[in-house]
């Protein structure tokens, strides 16, 4: 780790002011990703602004019937919060599919959005990486790219966003509330993370100094028909190769509303509203789900080691919607692992 100074912020505006006043400062919430990146010398901030004393850990109802997740609520407290479990079980399931219990106890909800890719080359200072050092090239393109993106990538970067929680937040149409030097604003979840384009060093659309203060869930939680399916190399404590957040609203067997977002396939949590539109008004059958799945991967592009994700994504989408329809949400695809003796 490089040398840095630590400033524990006592109020949001003080934190923002501190951030703007230092050219190479970083906010630190739970630190689970940032401290690791600092140990690897991938992140080298010279000033850390501690957020833990800010009054942003509450989870409370909003006047519009939604639920506000304070940016400093931990992932564990969120996943096991009674209102989240009851009204947004898709979110609980996605959070619990990620990381380990220890990490979920430290990691904050705002920090979950801010975590960086786990692309091997991004972490490896000995190799070129446009995200870490713009203009040096992408080692994953033409390198080993089994965990990389199949959708929305660019010629400069094929990294994926690693979060599970964010896939559910995208599907649930969450609003991100931020504070910055120019006051407060809200960002639609779909607009928060970026595609790499020719600026892969930028993960999101936050302006300088802006700090996430809350994640606002809308009233509609799809608490009956939902599933977060996560496919990975081992069935616990591993990042997704492909994950699917699927949610339906049904009238009998007819789909009246649908949500679909994927993880592990793109530079951002990949919500596909065009595929959702294909589902609405249709019967909840495998054929319907297959059509939506085909739509999602229509523009997919595989590389040497990750082309399998295209077929995997299609099948995962169909399976997740089948689970949602049958009210049998399951993170893992293996029935044995989901047996509950």
């Amino acid at each position: 780790m490089n040398s840095f100074t630590y400033f524990p912020a006592a109020a949001v505006d003080l934190a923002v002011r501190e951030k703007v006043a230092h050219s190479n400062a970083a906010y630190i919430g739970g630190g689970t990703n940032l401290v690791d990146l600092m140990k690897e010398n991938v992140a080298r901030p010279t000033h850390l602004i501690g957020l833990k004393h800010l009054p942003l850990a509450a989870i409370e109802n909003t006047t519009d019937g939604g639920l506000r997740l304070g940016a400093l609520a931990t992932n564990a407290d969120t996943a096991w919060h009674p209102e989240v479990e009851r009204r947004y079980p898709l979110l609980s399931q996605a959070i619990l599919a990620g990381a380990s219990p220890q990490l979920r106890n430290m990691a904050t909800d705002g920090g979950n959005l801010m975590q960086r890719t786990r692309c091997y080359y991004f972490y490896d200072l000995a190799t070129p990486c446009n995200k870490r050092e713009p203009g040096t090239g992408c080692s994953a393109i033409g390198g080993y790219n089994r965990i990389h993106a199949i959708l929305g990538a660019s010629e400069q970067c094929i990294a994926t966003h690693p979060s599970d929680m964010c896939v559910a937040l995208a599907a649930l149409a969450t609003t991100v509330r931020v504070s910055g030097p120019n006051g407060e604003r809200t960002i639609r979840f779909e607009d928060f993370h970026r595609l790499p384009g020719d600026q892969p060093e930028r993960d999101n659309t936050l302006a300088d100094g802006e700090l996430i203060t809350s994640l606002d869930l809308p009233p509609k939680g799809f608490a009956t028909n939902y599933s977060y399916l996560k496919l990975r190399d081992r069935t616990s404590y591993a990042f997704a190769l492909v994950s699917v957040a699927a949610a339906l609203e049904l009238d009998g067997n007819t789909i009246t509303d649908a949500r679909l977002a994927l993880g592990g396939v793109a530079h951002k949590p990949w919500r596909d509203t065009a595929a959702e539109a294909l589902l609405i008004g249709q019967p909840a059958t495998a054929d319907t789900f297959r059509r939506a799945a085909a739509k999602v991967v229509a523009g997919a592009q595989g590389h040497a080691h990750n082309a399998f994700k295209i077929e995997l994504a299609k099948r995962a989408i169909v399976r997740a919607f089948k689970q949602a329809t049958e009210m049998t949400p399951a993170t893992d695809s293996n029935a044995f692992l989901n047996s509950n003796p």
């Binding site: 524990p8 630190i28 630190g31 401290v35 690791d36 501690g50 430290m106």
Partner: peptide, 16 residues
């Protein structure tokens, strides 16, 4: 354990 909750002490700064 921090306040009874398990965490990874390697990823936490002591000053925090």
């Amino acid at each position: 354990l921090i306040n009874g909750k398990r965490i990874n002490s390697c990823l936490s700064l002591a000053v925090m």
